[in-house]
Design a protein around this nucleic acid. Structure first.
Lengths: 210, 210
DNA sequence: GTCTATATACGGATAGAC
DNA sequence: GTCTATCCGTATATAGAC
């Protein structure tokens, strides 16, 4: 007789099948446009069962959203808090990991950012994004570099905006960018791979601008 | 007796009131989550009248979307095709104009980019984005600079991505960024004003990276 | 746990009076 | 042109059988 543990490896639980389907549909369409019918169909079950497990579309959504963001935060907080690496090394690793993640889940940023606008405070506060970043080793190093005059004395948020913008924007804007550059999915991904090396160099160059 | 022309100045036509309301609601919520009831209420009229003028939610949406994107394209194509300005000058003006526009309409990019994902081909092709950019004086200058070795020989799209990312991302990510940086609307906008000067410098620095 | 059938609510659109 | 009242399809959620 199978234990619940082994089932999760061999064959997804019904609950997991729903989770997976929900993540897919929600990230593609957003909360408002997603239909529980689509999720149920994608999971190979029916709406009644979906509600049996998750009570409502809204509850299901909250769980998926929280999971997505926690997964993201978890994946970067290790890098941000590694006391053995320099600022430059952290940026390199961050850029590389992030681009790999987005190559697999290119719709995630637009989904998260869209929903954050509707829900503003709640989720952001719950995840305590701010404290996690500000108290990270990365942020300390960044401020230190500014104080030591190694980096121009501008608001540290400018650097965060630039790094995130250069990494995330291509994925958010991919429909336009692919059109402009006549790119297939494959070529687009090759450009993203190039950016793993290029972005850290660009950021370094920026940091020397006075 | 007022002519229709003078009415549009003194007091918006009903049709215009609906347009304005629709733009507001659509950009805030996206097509799927926007309710015609909300639009009607925002415009101070009722659904019947909305359908009287625009036949359906979908038709109204198409008009708003087209207007938004045409307005945007029109506002930058002048800059991109000014044969009197250098590449650097174009970037300066572009960044400045763009940031001013987004300060007024901060929700526009997320709206457009979200909808483009659902509708992929249709709108992008209709607007002929690609041809307009590729045949612009800006793009010619960019490629020329690469050929002359003034800029590293990477895909020109990388620069487009960087410029757009640095300008647009802060607005798209503003809920998170404001939270991280403990920023009020006013302080956020001050940072955006700073970026009008900073971004062109950063781009110049990047372009010298080999 | 999982299904079918159904209640209930909501949203877009129209009919028809003024 | 503008309104009120209403229709009808669709979406979420639940009841109840298996």
């Amino acid at each position: 007789m199978k234990s619940k543990e082994s089932q999760t490896v061999i064959d997804p639980t019904t609950e997991e099948k729903i989770r997976i389907a929900a993540r897919k549909v929600f990230t593609q369409k957003g909360y408002g446009a997603a239909r529980t019918r689509d999720i149920a169909q994608e999971a190979g079950i029916n709406i009644a069962l979906l509600n049996y497990y998750f009570r409502s579309k809204e509850k299901l959504f909250e769980i998926i959203m929280l999971e997505s963001m926690q997964g993201f935060i978890h994946s970067i907080s290790g890098v941000l808090n590694d006391e053995q690496t320099s600022l430059q090394e952290k940026i390199q690793i961050l850029v590389s990991n992030y681009i790999d993640m987005l190559t697999i889940q290119p719709n995630l940023p637009l989904f998260v950012l869209s929903e954050l606008r509707s829900n503003p405070q709640e989720l952001i506060l719950k995840l305590n994004f701010k404290e996690k970043l500000i108290h990270s080793h990365f942020f300390v190093q960044l401020q230190q570099a500014i104080q030591e005059g190694k980096i121009p004395p501008i608001h540290p948020l400018h650097f965060i905006m630039n790094i995130m913008g250069m990494i995330i924007f291509p994925f958010i804007g991919s429909p336009i960018l692919k059109n402009i550059g006549d790119l297939e999915e494959k070529t687009f991904n090759e450009l993203m791979q190039q950016r793993k090396i290029l972005i850290p160099k660009w950021i370094e160059a920026m940091m020397n601008v006075k």
